[in-house]
């Protein structure tokens, strides 16, 4: 494995997966030294704010046919990164190459290579689901017959046909998101950039999204770049993931490879009935290392130590004060924290 992965600090992290054959090995997206700052006093939404270095020297390689994730809490710089990949923002420094095209020099080419699902739906809100999909297809260069045929196929695939004549603004948040995803799929593109596509979706809609993504990857070799702050989603659907914190890539590997970094640790959650019994010396000692959220204490401990703590708590006087406890294998959230991630906001759902 000598292919470049994503550079993290001073090391190049190799990828660990060999899935996909030769078709998946060509690099489709190459990002080098990407820097983007928002000036002081003028945030992206016009609010007063100090200067923010939203992307601080990002390097990435995404290979063809890969489902590549950008995982990080809100405000980590993920959306800023994909907005530069899609030609919506011009970087202060660095390069973005998409399927051999220089997107910094020719941002308008991105629209002809990428299907983009942004976080906002306001351009489509007042259209019906069918018209939103059809119009988007026509604006992707399809003629009217092709746009309608693709619209029907995509709505059928995502089980949206029953909602086809409803305006997006009258749908629930999850249904609206699914309709926008449908619009992003009409007019085939070799790369899909999806910014938190499953926000507010129920499990059925989520499955429809991942089935549609998988189908495009299997049948057409589509490459998917996915922005998410959902840890479970990242672990289950991604081939590789770049963990982003404060504008930098702090780790990049397969989800399994990243979790191996903290494999000797487990996560122990303690939920107290009322006040934790701090008069018990063992409990008082745990308090030092626990992350406290209300009555819940979260600890990351080596396996042996965790077992000993559980035995001590369940066999001793603290047991009566304990409402619930769970021991779990580490998740990508633990990886994020172990790598020095500081913000809260990763979601497990």
């Amino acid at each position: 494995m000598s292919r470049p992965g994503c550079s993290v600090g001073s090391v190049l992290v190799s990828t660990g997966t060999e899935q996909g054959a030769t078709a998946r090995t060509a690099v489709v997206v190459t990002v080098r030294g990407l820097v983007k700052s928002y000036p002081a006093g003028r945030g992206r939404r016009g609010a007063a704010s100090p200067p923010v270095r939203a992307n601080d020297g990002i390097d990435l390689d995404v290979r063809g046919g890969e489902i590549f994730g950008l995982l990080g809490p809100n405000g980590a710089g993920k959306t800023t990164l994909v907005r530069q990949l899609t030609g919506l923002l011009r970087p202060d420094a660095g390069s973005v190459e998409l399927l051999g095209h220089d997107i910094v020099r020719h941002p308008e080419r991105a629209a002809r290579l990428v299907g983009y699902l942004g976080q906002e739906s306001s351009a489509l809100d007042e259209l019906t689901v069918a018209l939103a999909a059809e119009t988007t297809g026509r604006l992707r260069g399809l003629d009217i017959r092709a746009a309608r045929a693709e619209r029907d196929a995509v709505l059928e695939e995502l089980e949206l046909t029953a909602l086809a004549s409803r305006p997006l603004k009258r749908l629930s948040g999850g249904e609206r998101r699914l309709a926008c995803f449908a619009a992003a799929l009409v007019g085939e593109r070799p790369v899909l950039v999806l910014d938190e596509p499953t926000t507010a979706m129920d499990p059925v809609a989520r499955r429809a999204v991942w089935a549609a993504v998988d189908r495009r990857r299997a049948e057409r070799g589509t490459t998917v770049l996915l922005v998410t702050h959902n840890v479970i989603e990242a672990e289950t659907v991604l081939d590789r993931v770049a963990v982003i914190d404060e504008g930098r890539v702090i780790a990049c590997d397969t989800p399994a490879g990243l979790k191996a970094l903290v494999a000797d640790e487990v996560r122990l959650d303690l939920v107290w009935r009322d006040e934790p019994p701090l008069d018990v010396p063992g409990v008082a000692a745990l308090r030092e290392t626990a992350r406290v959220t209300g009555r819940r204490w979260t600890l990351r401990l080596p396996q042996q130590r965790a077992r000993a703590v559980v035995a001590e708590l369940t066999g001793g006087p603290a047991f009566t004060a304990l409402d619930d406890f769970t021991l779990t294998a580490p998740s990508l959230e633990d990886v994020y924290l172990a790598l020095g991630g500081r913000r809260k906001g990763l979601v497990k759902a």
């Binding site: 292919r3 470049p4 550079s7 600090g9 001073s10 190049l12 090995t25 060509a26 690099v27 489709v28 190459t30 080098r32 030294g33 820097v35 020297g57 390097d59 390689d61 290979r63 420094a93 660095g94 390069s95 190459e97 399927l99 051999g100 095209h101 220089d102 910094v104 290579l113 070799p190």
Partner: peptide
């Protein structure tokens, strides 16, 4: 990083991308 951050020297960067500029673009 071990990869040059200089946008203008991409082709000369030590870890050149698999589809460098100049290769056939999609």
């Amino acid at each position: 990083t071990i990869i040059s951050a200089d946008a203008d020297t991409r082709t000369a960067a030590p870890a050149a991308p698999a589809t460098p500029l100049g290769a056939e673009a999609a």
